[in-house]
């Protein structure tokens, strides 16, 4: 008992730093990804499977239109976006779990800033999904993808993927805070996984019927994939880079304050 009481005084007096708490919660979120078989499947088996399916199964049946690219070269950048987006979207489920499972109450009675909880989920998601996307890229190389990127191109590729994961994770946290069940939170993955199909990612947009084609050409995934294709294959990017960057920045700038406001509402009642 004496020992416990001494600790009490010590614990009560010690102040932590926001960055230290954030680090501990990021480590916790990443630990979740290594301790279950489910998580390993999502993080490693999924990207491998998606890549194999696209390159082998669809590869023979889809023509790449006027781009003149091999299908593998045409498809890999888009599949990377799918992998990154799918993983990022799962952040919605993690967020909903924190809120509905009661963990948020535990964290809120600790002497830490409550904002560190969603922030840690987003940062952990970026770390995890950039790594996952790296795995998917390695698989693509094994399957015959031959990237031609310059060193600067590689750095920018990593930045674009990280930016996309950040934007999607921020939106996912917002969605996870809007819904009241983990099932509903899971629906976000579906949207994020489906969006690339309606872009110039899997099938060239020029082969789509009118309205669909207009949508495909103007939705954010198309310039994003164009940018990655340009960087990885060392081809001209044109305006796609700026358009993609604007979409990603816009998503973060809109989602973050909305999520923060929603989080404050859900934690003050």
């Amino acid at each position: 008992m004496t020992a416990m009481t001494t600790t009490a005084a010590a614990a009560a007096g010690r102040r932590g730093s926001g960055a230290g708490d954030l680090g501990r919660l990021i480590a916790r979120a990443l630990r979740h990804e290594t301790c279950t078989v489910d998580a390993l499947i999502v993080n490693i088996a999924m990207p491998v499977a998606i890549m194999v399916v696209f390159v082998y199964v669809f590869g023979g049946a889809i023509t790449t239109g006027s781009s003149g690219l091999e299908y593998i070269d045409f498809a890999v950048p888009g599949v990377l976006v799918m992998c990154a987006g799918y993983g990022a979207a799962l952040t919605a489920v993690s967020m909903a779990e924190e809120m509905t499972g009661g963990m948020i109450d535990r964290f809120r009675t600790l002497p830490i800033g409550a904002w560190t909880v969603p922030a840690a989920l987003v940062i952990a998601s970026v770390v995890r999904n950039v790594a996952t996307t790296g795995i998917a890229l390695a698989v693509a190389v094994v399957l015959g993808f031959r990237p031609d990127a310059t060193p600067a191109g590689w750095v920018l590729t990593a930045a674009v993927v990280a930016g996309y994961v950040l934007a999607m994770s921020a939106l996912a946290v917002l969605w996870g805070l809007m819904v009241t069940s983990t099932q509903a939170a899971g629906a976000f993955s579906f949207v994020v996984l489906f969006l690339p199909y309606l872009s110039d990612t899997v099938v060239p947009a020029e082969t789509m019927p009118g309205a669909l084609r207009a949508f495909a050409e103007h939705q954010p995934i198309t310039p994003l994939v164009e940018t990655l294709r340009g960087l990885l294959l060392d081809r001209p990017i044109g305006d796609s880079g700026w358009i993609a960057a604007a979409w990603l920045a816009g998503a973060v700038v809109v989602a973050t304050p909305l999520a923060a406001a929603r989080f404050r509402r859900r934690t003050s009642a």
Partner: peptide, 17 residues
């Protein structure tokens, strides 16, 4: 928050850890 501890009615531990 620096002087309290709470055991809530609904258990709040991290099931994955």
């Amino acid at each position: 928050r620096r002087v309290i501890g709470l055991t809530a009615q609904q258990a709040t531990v991290d099931d994955l850890l």
